[in-house]
Amino acid sequence: MKAPPRLQTLVEEGLIDTVVRQLMSGKEAMVFVVRCGDETRCAKIYKEANNRSFRQAVDYTENRKVKNSRSARAMAKGSRFGRQEQEAAWQSAEVDALYRLAAAGVRVPQPYNFHDGVLLMELVTDANGDAAPRLNDVAFTEEQALQHHATLIGEVVRMLCAGVVHGDLSEFNILLANSGGDDGVDVPVIIDLPQAVDAAGNNHAQRMLLRDVANLRDFFGQFAPTLLKTDFGPEIWSLYQGGLLSNETPLTGHYERATADVDMQAVLREIDDARAEDAARRLRMATA
């Protein structure tokens, strides 16, 4: 097929040889199957902000750092240059997360290159060499559901130990890939990470992790109802906050919530203090 304009640049640069076909079009990007020498890979073209249905919500972009102070000030002010810089930071977030998680041993597509808003990465395939299906396109036995759920809970823990929360994890952005092993068992691969957040630097990280884990529970619970009674999210976050979480930490799926009375006045004071601090910070950045 004819290469789209943004992929034509990669052809001219020699990064890809040919564009085979379009694989999918999602809320923030279009993905194409491409040939690079003897290998088949995929190229993810990020949509411009005004063409995306998924917006850069403040929950996701909170505390994302840029090295250039001029860019940071422009992003805070919301100028045209600042919006361009924010868009670049949004696009590079997935690249950074992929390299970070791949190094931590998380099952994610291997990234190869990022050029002009296009991410070139591994094409995740099934046993026949075709593009791997998403979880929502597959039916599971109870045993398979329990196995894949346990694997993905382990991946969530591994991500958190690497300091990353996916932020939008569900059956729609997990692929079921060929493991390449003799046992023929497929393995889940986590994709779509531009909304990933820093676990320690984002105030919404806990809520996002709890939602990610709940999504896994609810999906696999359709096939293995016993999972619907589990409570892995709060257990994982509590261990993380206490500095007790590692890739080998045994989990029970149960969590006892504290029953002590909550000092609502103290909570409201904390909220007011946080708002005042944020307003002062924004004022300093605007006048810098």
Score class of each variant (00 low, 15 high):
K67W: 12
L244R: 15
A224R: 06
D182Q: 11
L239T: 01
R107M: 11
A200W: 13
T40V: 14
N113D: 15
T230A: 03
V108G: 02
R6M: 02
L283T: 11
M264C: 07
R281D: 12
K65G: 05
G233Q: 13
P188W: 02
Q110E: 15
Q206H: 14
Y46P: 09
A76F: 00
A286R: 12
L209P: 09
D278P: 01
M75V: 12
G242P: 09
V187M: 06
W237P: 01
A3V: 03
A97S: 15
A88M: 03
D126H: 04
A196Q: 11
P4W: 00
G129W: 06
D130K: 14
P5Q: 01
Q265I: 04
F32L: 12
A224Y: 07
E94R: 00
W237T: 04
G221A: 07
L101V: 01
T249P: 10
L135Y: 06
T259R: 08
A214P: 00
E142D: 13
E155M: 03
W237M: 04
L160K: 10
L227G: 05
D183H: 05
R64W: 15
L245F: 10
P194I: 05
A102K: 14
V197N: 05
G167P: 09
V197D: 01
M159C: 13
L245M: 12
P194T: 07
A274S: 06
A279L: 14
M24Q: 14
D273I: 00
I236F: 01
G201Q: 15
A280T: 06
N136K: 13
G117P: 05
R134H: 14
L193A: 01
P133K: 02
Q241H: 11
A266L: 11
V213M: 08
G129A: 08
M121L: 08
Y60W: 13
G105D: 10
F220P: 05
G181Y: 02
Y46V: 11
M121C: 07
F54G: 07
Q84Y: 02
P250A: 01
E48H: 15
W90Q: 06
S71N: 04
R52D: 08
C36F: 06
A276N: 15
A76T: 05
D263S: 02
A279S: 12
A145W: 10
G184T: 03
R80D: 12
Q222R: 15
G180A: 00
H166L: 02
M75N: 05
V106C: 11
R107G: 03
A57K: 08
R284Y: 05
T252A: 07
A104L: 04
E122Y: 07
A88S: 14
L176R: 01
A260I: 07
T9H: 10
I153A: 09
T61P: 06
F172C: 09
A280H: 10
V267M: 04
Q56K: 14
G242S: 13
A280S: 10
T9P: 00
L160H: 10
G167L: 08
D198M: 08
S170M: 06
D278Q: 04
A29I: 09
H115L: 01
L268N: 14
A214N: 15
H115D: 14
V118G: 06
A76C: 09
F140E: 04
L152C: 07
Q144D: 15
S53R: 13
H204F: 13
A131P: 12
A274D: 12
